[in-house]
């Protein structure tokens, strides 16, 4: 996870682990997944869970420019200057994977403007199952699916489900109503992902986003070690 290319130009080029002044930059975690799986709700919950202990900011990649950013602003999970929307030309997967330049500008500008940050969450607009983040943009990525989207998604696999550093199966409270088999989803995910972790969560339950927040804390501990 530690990327130690360095360059001596005026600004960082890509995933350079250091800011131009030599300090270590914020850990960047990407959140992707299909439309409606609860990415923005998970980001909002993570902000509420972590904002008192960490300096954090959010970059959204919407299909329609500012919808997710505006949801986060309305919910007041972070001060407005900690939330930036990147315009994606109708293709969030391009902006997070194939041409990450606008996102790199956004995360760097956030860190320049808000001072040193511990964590930047980069959220992708709802896209398809093949959308993954470039390693040039994020240090780790979370793929969010939900039980209502069909309990066969883990079995079908795809780059997001298979390779994400964390798979989140969201909205477990809905499983009884949509006839999804959580045990089967867990077994399929295990088959696809081997040792990579999976979290089942319901943001409506008491635990809420606690497991994902704990995973983020562990990533951050490794990053700053």
């Amino acid at each position: 996870m530690h990327l130690d290319h360095t360059n001596h130009g005026p600004t960082a080029l890509s995933a350079d682990a250091h800011r131009p002044d030599g300090t270590r930059r914020a850990l960047r975690i990407g959140l992707g997944g299909p439309v409606g799986s609860g990415k923005t709700a998970t980001v909002a919950a993570l902000c509420r869970a972590l904002r008192d202990e960490l300096a954090l900011a959010v970059v959204t990649n919407d299909i329609y420019t500012r919808e997710d950013a505006e949801f986060l602003l309305r919910e007041a999970v972070l001060p407005p200057e900690r939330i930036t929307a990147v315009e994606t030309g109708a293709c969030p997967h391009t902006a997070i994977r194939d041409d990450i330049s606008a996102n790199l500008e956004a995360v760097e500008d956030l860190e320049d403007a808000a001072g040193p940050l511990d964590l930047v969450l980069v959220e992708s607009g709802g896209d398809n199952l093949t959308a993954t983040f470039s390693k040039g943009l994020v240090d780790a990525q979370i793929f969010v699916i939900d039980v209502a989207g069909g309990d066969d998604i883990p079995r079908k696999g795809g780059p997001g489900v298979t390779t994400a550093d964390l798979l989140v199966v969201n909205k477990t409270d809905l499983a009884p109503y949509v006839g999804s088999d959580l045990a089967r989803m867990a077994a399929d995910a295990k088959a696809q992902r081997a040792e990579l972790p999976v979290v089942f969560q319901s943001l409506r339950s008491e635990a809420g986003v606690a497991d994902v927040a704990a995973w983020v804390r562990a990533q951050l501990a490794a990053w700053t070690a």
Binding site: V86, E87, T88, G89, A95, D98, D99
Partner: peptide, 9 residues
């Protein structure tokens, strides 16, 4: 596909 941000304009 040169990654310089043109796709969003």
């Amino acid at each position: 596909r040169f990654p310089a941000g043109g796709h969003a304009h």
